[in-house]
């Protein structure tokens, strides 16, 4: 911005004016990091932190898509099952070996995965908007469909990559790094940057927020509400596919447990990140932070010695609730 008059405001912003809702998740993450360091000195080891960061990739990437859907006032419960389905289709394609050469084969398979993800998202979007059905119900339905299709494709077992050479060529996408930064972490950054750009800087992003904020106002302002809604589901589908691209090289298989409960983790990450479930607010970086918080909590649980393995779920649940309470109280104090 070159216009100085418009810039006067940010310049004289005092500390009290900073939007605490946006900062709160990062504060919660910092507190957790301190807690982790107290629990086990190995927690702050580079390897451990990189592990956790890398592991959070799937949920973080999917949650970026969920931020769009939820900001626009929607909901997508099918992402976990969709992940398994996309992974299954991708691996089955890789196993056909129709494209010669490892890199071309992988490239085609990746494009296919993204295409399948986008189509799955499009189906969710079109059924929700054209059928005028609650997204909760639509995506609950497609969740069952995607999951069953995966099991059908796997004939009850798991779908594994057969060619060891291909597997070896693909493996670095999860385990490799660039200047010490794991590739999945770079993928998170790239997806979040593109997501933030779309949501904050483009007309489409503005329309997403408007539709989630008040559908009537959006309609009376000439915004194509259904198209915007549908596109958020397509973005969600593409994000799921990108997560799958990073997931498949890790274990080289889609199993019946692939993506189990990922939808709830993604939604939790979005909400912890400060995005309102009722729509109208979207925080991409908060979402990434939320996904990290979820993964860090799990990591601390295993690294600590004082929680019985039977009670880990309870402690995780309590930490998430406390993180939200801290956030809310910070915001209320404004």
């Amino acid at each position: 911005m070159t216009d100085t008059t418009a810039n006067k405001n940010p310049a004289r912003r005092s500390l009290g004016d900073i939007d605490l809702r946006a900062v709160a998740p990062f504060v919660a993450l910092a507190v957790l990091l301190v807690l982790g360091a107290l629990v086990n000195p190995n927690f702050l080891g580079v390897d451990n932190l990189l592990n956790v960061l890398t592991r959070s990739a799937f949920i973080a990437i999917i949650a970026v898509g969920a931020t769009f859907v939820i900001s626009a006032g929607g909901l997508d419960l099918s992402v976990g099952a969709m992940s398994a389905f996309v992974a299954g289709v991708m691996i089955l394609f890789l196993n056909t070996g129709v494209v010669s050469g490892e890199i071309p084969m992988l490239a085609v398979a990746m494009l296919l995965a993204i295409g399948v993800g986008a189509l799955c998202g499009l189906a969710n979007g079109v059924i929700t908007t054209q059928g005028r059905i609650e997204p909760f119900i639509v995506t609950l339905g497609t969740m069952g469909i995607f999951r069953a299709l995966t099991i059908y494709l796997a004939e009850g077992g798991s779908i594994a990559m057969k060619a060891p050479d291909l597997r070896a060529a693909y493996r670095p996408v999860y385990f490799g790094n660039v200047f010490g930064v794991p590739i999945p972490v770079l993928v998170i950054l790239a997806v979040a940057l593109v997501g933030a750009f779309l949501l904050y800087r483009t007309a489409f992003g503005r329309h997403v927020i408007a539709v989630g904020s008040n559908e009537d106002v959006a309609r009376y302002s000439g915004i194509p509400v259904n198209r915007v809604r549908t596109l958020t589901y397509v973005i969600q589908g593409v994000c799921v596919a990108i997560a799958v691209l990073v997931y498949v090289p890790r274990l080289g298989a889609a199993t019946p447990t692939t993506g189990l409960l990922w939808e709830l983790q993604a939604i939790t990450a979005v909400v912890i990140g400060g995005t309102a479930l009722k729509g109208g607010v979207g925080r991409i970086w908060g979402t990434i932070c939320g996904a990290l918080i979820l993964e860090v909590v799990g990591n601390i649980m295993v690294l600590s010695n004082f929680v019985s393995e039977y009670l880990i779920g309870a402690v995780q649940g309590a930490i998430i609730i406390i993180a939200m309470l801290v956030q809310r109280s910070l915001v209320r104090r404004r």
Binding site: R206, S213, N214, D216, V217, R219, Y220, G280
Partner: peptide
């Protein structure tokens, strides 16, 4: 309030 303006968004938006 219901159809004209997004009450929860700022003036610029």
């Amino acid at each position: 309030k219901g159809k004209g303006l997004l009450l929860a968004q700022n003036l610029g938006i």
